[in-house]
């Protein structure tokens, strides 16, 4: 077995327990939220009319596209895919990106690994791949739990609403394709932050700086996006925020757009820059 594959497998193996914990946590949240749809779908509709909520609140809830939360997909978007799912996956991404290099370097474990016949390049690429694999696995299992929950909580049923003028519209129920698209876009937004955490960790070798820096980027991007809803003067800055395309595009409902490639480009750039920084610096002593 090549050294790269050994490092990849060992890193994932060392994270079995935490991966199971993250998966259970997100699955419980998803199933519990889905279970409330039959009783809460109509309640959330009152928020959707916008009478008691401003622009920022709508933006916060992912309602900027005029989504009807009483429909299955609208409910899943407002209650899960506009916030909880991407936030949870982003938190996992930050943890994984930090663990790839910075955590082990902070304790001295990375130094010992590099005393053997393994190169820094092998470690960087194997661990980045392992971090993405774990993130992908947890994302997949979260999506799978959602798909399996759909028929139990009426989320596959279409919903017909009648407007005051007598016209009616029918919204389709959620499909496997919708959930796959929504999950994939959530995975993508988390992947970008995983890349940023990897980059900071590879460049500094410090766990605290990496956790703090990557979290600040994630939270800062969100704050920037919600503030831009209140004042257009900040709008030019929102291109830095993944929430701009994630919330505006609503891929769970509207399908994939090319914007989904942005976090992949971000992660790839972070990998390459982080790898070079890692190659050319001193390892931190524990």
């Amino acid at each position: 077995m090549s050294a790269t594959l050994s490092v990849y497998r060992r890193w994932i193996r060392d994270r079995r327990l935490s991966t199971v914990s993250w998966t259970l946590g997100i699955v419980v949240i998803i199933v519990a939220t889905a279970a409330f749809y039959p009783s809460l779908g109509s309640t959330t509709a009152s928020i959707a009319d916008g009478s008691d909520s401003g622009e920022a609140m709508s933006s916060l809830l992912g309602l900027s596209s005029g989504i009807d939360p009483s429909t299955p997909l609208g409910y899943l978007w407002i209650s899960l895919y506009a916030n909880i799912v991407p936030w949870t996956l982003m938190a996992l991404g930050v943890a994984l990106g930090t663990a790839a290099i910075a955590s082990d370097e902070d304790t001295g474990a990375l130094e010992y690994l590099l005393s053997g016949p393994v190169t820094r390049t092998q470690v960087a690429f194997a661990r980045f791949a392992a971090a993405v694999s774990v993130l992908l696995l947890v994302s997949f299992l979260s999506g799978l739990s959602m798909v399996l929950s759909l028929p139990f909580f009426d989320l596959t049923e279409s919903v017909t609403t009648t407007a005051p003028d007598g016209s009616s519209t029918t919204a389709p129920g959620a499909t496997v394709g919708d959930i796959a698209t929504g999950t994939f876009s959530s995975f993508a937004v988390a992947l970008g932050l995983t890349g940023i955490a990897f980059l900071i960790g590879a460049a500094t070798g410090r766990k605290g700086i990496t956790l703090g820096g990557a979290s600040a980027v994630g939270i800062g991007g969100y704050v920037l996006y919600t503030l831009s809803s209140m004042t257009s003067s900040l709008d030019f800055l929102t291109w830095l925020s993944p929430w701009r395309w994630y919330v505006d595009d609503v891929m769970l409902i509207n399908g994939l757009t090319w914007d989904v490639t942005l976090p992949f480009i971000t992660a790839t750039l972070c990998l390459l820059i982080g790898w070079q920084a890692f190659l050319h610096r001193d390892l931190q002593s524990s």
Binding site: M1, A3, S6, R10, D14, L17, D104, T107, G108, A109, E111, Y112, L113, S115, G116, P117, V118, S286
Partner: peptide, 25 residues
């Protein structure tokens, strides 16, 4: 190599360490 203070991943047992690091060589 023996470092001044050996640190290994939290979950790794002695046997794991021998198999993993030994297997790299």
């Amino acid at each position: 190599y023996l470092p001044g203070d050996l640190n290994l991943p939290r979950t790794m047992t002695g046997r794991d360490a021998f198999n993993y690091f030994g297997g790299l060589r």
